[in-house]
Design a protein around this nucleic acid. Sequence first.
DNA 1: ATATTATACTTACAAATAGTTAGTAACACA
DNA 2: TGTGTTACTAACTATTTGTAAGTATAATAT
Lengths: 103, 103
Amino acid sequence: MVKMNLCPKFETAFQLLGKRWNGLIIRVLLNGPVRFRDISANIPGMSDKMLVDRLKQLEAAGVVKRKVYPETPVRIEYLLTDKGKALEPALDEIQAWAENWMD
Amino acid sequence: MVKMNLCPKFETAFQLLGKRWNGLIIRVLLNGPVRFRDISANIPGMSDKMLVDRLKQLEAAGVVKRKVYPETPVRIEYLLTDKGKALEPALDEIQAWAENWMD
DNA sequence: ATATTATACTTACAAATAGTTAGTAACACA
DNA sequence: TGTGTTACTAACTATTTGTAAGTATAATAT
């Protein structure tokens, strides 16, 4: 039997990226801090429920931070941590691949 | 409202990569052609059913090719197309990110 | 005082996807 | 005739995702 030794960290990374919406959410957040509505409006087909769920998951993974501005009405911004920003080269490579090979 | 214009090709790319197992399967196939059992044995937790399903999906997407050797017992190898191999830099970036930021 | 508006969620339920376990077809070999 | 191996398939359950509606909060409008 052929043994390949998939890196467990790579597996963990794909528990995040290999979930629907997560890649797109991170991509949107790479443009800078944005509000819930703005993420939602820029990802067609994704429900509020999924966005809430994914933001919680990404926050728990240390990729996204939630910042509350106690204004009226309250304003909440989502932004990438350093860990999240570090995904930019990877997402850029996926973008490049998509441009070369999709359609 | 903030408009970001997510690239539709990027979205399509993440319909593939943003599905459980696909990233890991492609990663294994980057080592060269392998048989069904070998993929399966190198991805802990993934059932045969999911592997069949994903290989079909990746084949339909033009990322994976299926090669039949009419031996006894029949031998079937799965390998990446050029389109599939072109994902290597992207997966390498994810690997690098995982090594720097996981745990 | 009451109604209206906006934002960031929550809830209840239906539909789709994933997981588990068992089974099958094909064929050489004992 | 029976056994073993490989690459699946089928039947069923569990989990995840999707849909549609609702809620809390607080300023502003009537």
